[in-house]
Computed example of a mutant assay.
Amino acid sequence: MTLPIRLSAAGAVVLLSGVLGACAPATAPGVPEAPPAAEAGLNQSRAEGPSRWELTRWQQADGTLKPIPHGDNGEPVTFEFSAGIDAAQGLVSGYSGCNRFRGSYGKVAAGIVFGPVAGTRMACEPSRMALESALYQAMQSPFSTVGVQPSAGPAGRQVIWKTAAGDLLQFVERAGLGGRAEQPAAPAGAVEKTIEVDAQRVACTGVAPQQCYRVRQAPDAPWTLWYGAIEGFDFEPGTRYRLRVRETRVANPPADASSIRWELIRVESSSRGQ
């Protein structure tokens, strides 16, 4: 399976052949299957359809936890599966800690396998690049499914995959793609609003230099900078968005954090090249 990749304004797209070139989609001949897992569960509970998953925990084979840093605007490490993790095959895209990536995936007897992946090529601070490199390295081999279960909260399912090196990666299903995960109840005092997000982020300085969204609440209003994250939003450079968000006030925020929190409810529209 080949996958056309658009050039991103954030950086040139390159094939990560040195890391993932040896992989192939699950339908290709000769792809090894994952070793037997304690409890394979990709066929449980959900119909096929797009789904979005966040990497929330990485336990290494020796029992230590690998830190999972977030992006400049708080972006988590996410995988978006075009047909859900239950599907026989599909396309995967997401944010790997520093860059965005796209590729293919397929279901095998006891887990999931990733095909060739391409991504943007940006430099980030060392901890994010180290996490990204380790993730791409792990994706060279199939992940075996340790288990799938409901989350403790309303976000959807959790899945734990085991890498060939024995690391355990825990992903939690998130809202924001395909309506697959339920939206949590709105906290007291929350308000909903519609915002526009410009097609490019810009350099800005908060506590430290970072990249900010340009946002506005009306088509004729001037653009303003948004220094925080938009939780559940997966931004693609070169695309302008119209979003419905939930805004809440944060009591006693850290000194380096905003007192306002935005959570994505839905993407109302998006358009390229603006």
Rank of each mutant, 00 (worst) to 15 (best):
M1C: 06
A10V: 13
G11A: 11
A12T: 07
A12C: 05
V13H: 09
L15Y: 09
L16F: 13
G18C: 05
V19I: 08
L20K: 00
A24L: 04
A26C: 01
G30Q: 01
V31I: 07
E33S: 10
A37N: 04
A38M: 09
N43S: 06
N43Y: 00
N43P: 00
R52S: 15
W53M: 02
W53P: 00
W53F: 08
E54M: 14
T56Q: 08
R57Q: 13
W58K: 13
A61D: 03
D62A: 10
D62C: 07
K66V: 04
P67L: 11
I68A: 10
P69C: 07
H70C: 02
D72F: 04
N73E: 01
G74T: 02
E75C: 03
E75F: 05
P76T: 05
P76H: 09
F81C: 05
A83Y: 02
A83S: 08
G84D: 06
I85K: 09
I85N: 04
Q89K: 14
G94I: 13
S96E: 02
C98F: 07
N99M: 14
R100I: 05
F101E: 02
G103Y: 08
G103I: 12
S104V: 11
V108A: 06
A109H: 01
A110Y: 14
G111Y: 11
I112C: 04
A118D: 09
G119V: 06
G119W: 12
A123R: 11
E125L: 14
R128E: 08
L131W: 12
Y136T: 06
Q137S: 07
A138T: 14
M139S: 03
P142A: 15
P142D: 14
T145D: 11
A155S: 02
Q158P: 00
A165Q: 09
L168T: 00
F171G: 01
E173T: 00
E173A: 01
R174H: 08
R174S: 12
L177T: 05
G179S: 04
G179L: 05
Q183K: 00
A186W: 01
A199K: 14
A199C: 12
R201T: 15
C204Q: 13
C204A: 15
T205E: 01
T205V: 06
Q210N: 08
Q210S: 12
R214L: 15
V215T: 12
Q217V: 01
A221W: 01
T224A: 09
Y227E: 13
I230R: 09
I230V: 14
I230D: 01
E231A: 11
E236Q: 08
R242L: 13
R246L: 10
E247L: 13
P253W: 15
A255R: 13
D256T: 11
D256Y: 06
A257Y: 02
S259Q: 06
I260V: 15
W262G: 02
R266L: 07
R266M: 04
R266G: 10
S269Q: 08
S271I: 07
S271T: 12
R272A: 12
